[in-house]
Amino acid sequence: MTHITVNVDGTTYEDDVEPRLLLAHYLRDRLGLTGTPIGCDTSNCGACTVELDGASAKSCSVLAVQADGCAVTTVQGLARNGELTALQRAFHEQHGLQCGYCTPGMIMAARDLLRENPHPTSDEVRHALEGNLCRCTGYQNIVRAVLAASGQQDGSGPADRTRDASGQQVTEEVTA
């Protein structure tokens, strides 16, 4: 057992945990913070995305012991006094969720994007969400929601998929 101290959504917890305990299971099974779901075992789906010291991380691919001394923000820590954040509101208004299982991860990934790039294009949004799978929405309304939360309307220009969120020129897709 390893002793850890983790601040989750503003509350500090101390626990003795097995080193192999995944952060996602620590949140869900130990702390009862079930707002963060788990959707895969290969870090592909992103449903379990949280913020670890302010940066998005897939909590199924982080050991709880790695979060020792860190601050974790989950989807349950976003709304204050029942007031949804702009992103949560936008997901609601743009119908950016159906079954909702991917939604916590989508919101955390989108927060990460908007911190670094407050006015992304629609393709930058798609690119930033590449690590989060949704099976219901076809992503279009999720993209709309993120754009709306950034104060933009839907309908940005044609594809410019070769830019990373940082503005770095990269090649993500092969074009002739």
Partner: peptide, 13 residues
């Protein structure tokens, strides 16, 4: 949406 957006869902797990 309200419960799904705030992590107050009851998934079976």
């Amino acid at each position: 949406d309200a419960r799904l957006l705030t992590g107050q869902t009851t998934w079976t797990d």
